[in-house]
């Protein structure tokens, strides 16, 4: 049963341990509906582990989390009906065409006749004309578009993006940024984005959270953050300032 209307993502005392290594330690986090939440942290800070737990792919060692009001462990299927997910370095069936890949994933999301939906999504992403090409022939930027397409094809309420700009050229990054903002504004999708590209956070996100060694050390809206650290020249300096504290 849904727990709350205000927050689409809630995590309470979330901990994940791998033998002796603690990837996530007592994480408490809330993300409001309609936000574009930028989740920052250095490599190995625990960002991907958090996303894996929130998308139900991984079970926490302790603590709990809910997405759209559903518990990620007890109601994982309900959660998955409401989310879209773009993993880092997204991969597809290389031997299938873009259309076949999207058709397969759409059907797994329960869409019985996905043809029209695929056309609509590709239209929205301005990516028509490539449907019948095999994914093996696609560039990184094109794959990322198909990655977004598969993530939004079932009209999710929340979209999880894990390092979405990784490996993209400047033009690819710009296009992706536009798509993310449009998805948020036009379709009202809440976006949770793992990244360490601070320039993108500054241009895209409404709220930021900073994770360090598995602990959330900072969370506030972007305007507030800029206000709080008004002496710093750039977001990069703000980030380093937060991390050093």
């Amino acid at each position: 049963m849904p727990k709350s209307d205000k927050f689409v993502i809630e995590a309470h005392s979330l901990t994940k341990k791998y033998k002796d290594f603690t990837a996530l330690s007592d994480l408490n986090l809330e993300v409001e509906k309609g936000e574009i939440f930028g989740f920052l942290g250095h490599n190995g800070a625990g960002k991907t582990t958090t996303v894996n737990i929130l998308t139900t792919l991984l079970e926490p060692t302790s603590g709990n989390a809910s997405v759209c009001g559903f518990d990620t462990q007890k109601d994982s299927l309900e959660v998955r009906k409401r989310i879209g997910y773009l993993p880092e370095n997204v991969k597809f069936y290389e031997d299938l065409t873009a259309f076949e890949n999207l058709e397969f994933f759409a059907k797994l999301s329960g869409i019985r006749e996905p043809k029209d939906k695929i056309e609509e999504v590709l239209d929205f992403l301005d990516f028509k004309g490539f449907e019948n090409k095999k994914l093996g022939e696609f560039s990184k930027g094109m794959r990322q578009r198909i990655g977004i397409a598969q993530a939004i094809i079932h009209d999710p309420e929340v979209l999880f993006l894990d390092e979405p700009t990784s490996g993209l050229d400047p033009m690819g990054i710009k296009n992706l940024r536009e798509v993310i903002i449009e998805l948020n504004k036009k379709k009202g999708i809440t976006i949770f984005m793992n990244t360490h590209l601070l320039s993108e956070v500054a241009k895209t996100c409404t709220t930021i959270g900073v994770l360090n060694h598995g602990k959330l050390i900072y969370k506030d809206s972007l305007p507030n953050t800029l206000k709080k650290f008004k002496d710093e020249v750039s977001l990069e300096e703000i980030y380093l300032n937060i991390e050093s504290k």
């Binding site: 998308t55 597809f92 290389e94």
Partner: peptide, 18 residues
């Protein structure tokens, strides 16, 4: 092996399939 080789397991299990 197909899914594991293609690296699509994460996408698949983020959909509504057990």
């Amino acid at each position: 092996i197909r899914e594991r080789r293609a690296g699509v397991s994460k996408i698949i299990f983020s959909k509504s399939i057990g």
